[in-house]
Write a protein that binds this DNA or RNA. Structure first.
Lengths: 203, 203, 203, 203
DNA sequence: GATGAATGAGCGTTCATTCAT
DNA sequence: AATGAATGAACGCTCATTCAT
């Protein structure tokens, strides 16, 4: 009962925070704004999180963990894979898993995309932590793919950043566009992304 | 002489502001920080600009105007163009002109890319104004191209946002990456961008 | 049984409070700190005492009562005493009784000495109450002594405050010094105090 | 003119702070209280000092420096002195110099005495710094005196702390007593102190 | 009786903005 | 024209106190 309440209140803070962060940016939202939107006293905020950065982390981390796990599974699968068609399906699977995450949590992903370009600092530690994980894992994935002869023999780091940049840009444009007028459509997004990635990188 | 002085001081504010905005984000930089870095009294700030948003505008607008003019020239040329090879060269010319702007003002472009995803509000009016202009003109360019049968018959708005998203993402990754370790290389960036755009959109 | 529990809990609060008050001062210790150190819920604090001042009173008052009773006994004895050697032994007896209290409750006495100089207010009501009692009784003792011709014919108030000041200062230096490195030694303290008082005041 | 103003305002803050600190203790006085008493905006406080501790330091340090210098002069004089009467006059001179400081700045000295017993921490850094200096120098003075055979052959540290404790206690009782009903009388205080010190320590 | 969640006033501190010099 | 002192609203955060469970 107590735990239930605690969980509910933390959820209300996260929901209110996410909504406000998307509308005004993490830097412009005050603790007062958040507790006001969550219909809660100011002091209660600090019962659930130690500061705004931790609230952002509560919003980001679950999704971040899912994303990182999907990429790790992809990397593991690639390391033992043989045959081009198998490898293709491994990448496709990653794309589908990521698309499901995006479809399930579009607003959290949008928050990430919205804030990740801001310089480190402020309440964005968890956002840049995810960015760092994504960068490192994408570089490793690209190295594995190149070592399998799947993609052009390019600098893995440059190719990885380019891919991330493109996906990130298109995803943001899509999600922000949708969020401006309704719910995002996961299928459309995934189609777009897979097309871009495969067209841009494959030899 | 008076004007000369005024111009120099405004320039110093812009330079200091740009440097700080890139390092910490527009939201996190105080007027005190700016006048401190510009070695100027706080009161003088308000003699040159009315607030932080106007300083950002002073930094962004010249570059924004150049970008918009280049796109307008491209649109004008396209409207009267006949023959596929001519049209190809018109697009290439746009790409080159934009690349020159990026190469000439990489930090200003980086500031734009860094801040454009943050929600409207704060000191970002001029940044979102440029974003709006870019979106509107890219959509029009896409419509013209589609009407000429140059690109696949897609929703012009979706295609435009996708292209902007991809360019924007790659450009940011490139510029931020370069700015982390030295000066950006315009030629490399142009090559990358042209390749992406042509691969992703042409039929 | 109920009372036993109540008494134990109050004791735990007093012990935790005394330890924290000595380490950080009554003003700097929060109710949270106290219940945390006493391993008790915050709400329980208010079941046992109404606020921090009352907790301080629970710590101070028992010792204060002992001190006051010893002084009262001394005063009573003096009022009926005849002969210088008798009177000498009455003073000596007071000194010994006080020394026993100090030796039995050095930390409580140290808390008193540490806080008594802070202005009235805060959680110090009981501490200043003891100070007031000490002052009043010392003045009366001095008056009695002067009336018996035992000490120089000085302003009793000035002499009393001087004696209190000196004892208080030396006692604090001794107790704080000892508490810095171990348990205080009652005998040494008594010796010191008696020497000072008798040297400083007697004719 | 600007400097004049700055000096005046800092002075107003120190005066208001000292008055409030004496009335309520440094811990209980808020910045709001201080700027209210100094008839100044809250933000101005931070133009003159960085926090409450620095304001206390501004009040204490000038007096602390005078005290320390007087003790250093005494120590220097003692190290080269020959003959008991010379040495006596050196101590007397120290007592007079200290008495002049007390007479000139009784409220600052009272603040020191009032706060020095509170545990380290809060805004008391400068107060404990002075306490440390006094302790160290008193121990050295006592060692010199003992080495000259001027005082009983005791543990210099114990003797020093005892002397400080006694002076400190009497001085506080005197100053607080006076400040309760009027201006302190420097001559009376000095007489009392010299008598105590010489009676208590000399062989 | 015991708990700890909830509250909101109050704290120290920062900052954009104004204005006398 | 240039300065930087002055302002006070607003921020992040703490805390004594209350009260439903």
């Amino acid at each position: 009962m107590r735990d239930r309440n605690r969980h509910d209140n933390l959820r209300r803070l996260c929901d209110a925070g996410l909504r406000l962060f998307l509308a005004e940016g993490t830097a412009a939202v005050s603790i007062d704004d958040i507790v006001g939107a969550a219909a809660m006293a100011k002091g209660s905020f600090y019962r659930y999180v130690s500061d705004k950065a931790e609230l952002v982390a509560h919003i980001i981390t679950p999704v971040a963990d899912e994303v990182v796990r999907a990429m790790d599974r992809c990397e593991d699968a690639l390391r033992t894979a043989r045959g081009e068609s198998v490898i293709d399906s491994i990448y496709l699977r990653l794309a589908l898993e990521l698309a499901q995450i995006v479809a399930a949590q579009p607003t959290t992903i949008l928050l990430y995309l919205q804030e990740v370009r801001a310089p480190r600092g402020g309440a964005r530690a968890s956002i840049h932590a995810l960015a760092d994980q994504l960068t490192a894992r994408t570089i490793r994935l690209t190295e594995v793919a190149r070592d399998h002869g799947l993609i052009r023999d390019v600098d893995a780091r440059v190719a990885a950043l380019t891919v991330i940049g493109a996906i990130d840009g298109i995803l943001f444009a899509t999600l922000r566009g949708r969020s401006d007028r309704g719910q995002p459509d996961a299928t459309a997004i995934v189609t777009e992304l897979v097309r871009i990635v495969l067209h841009g990188i494959r030899r």
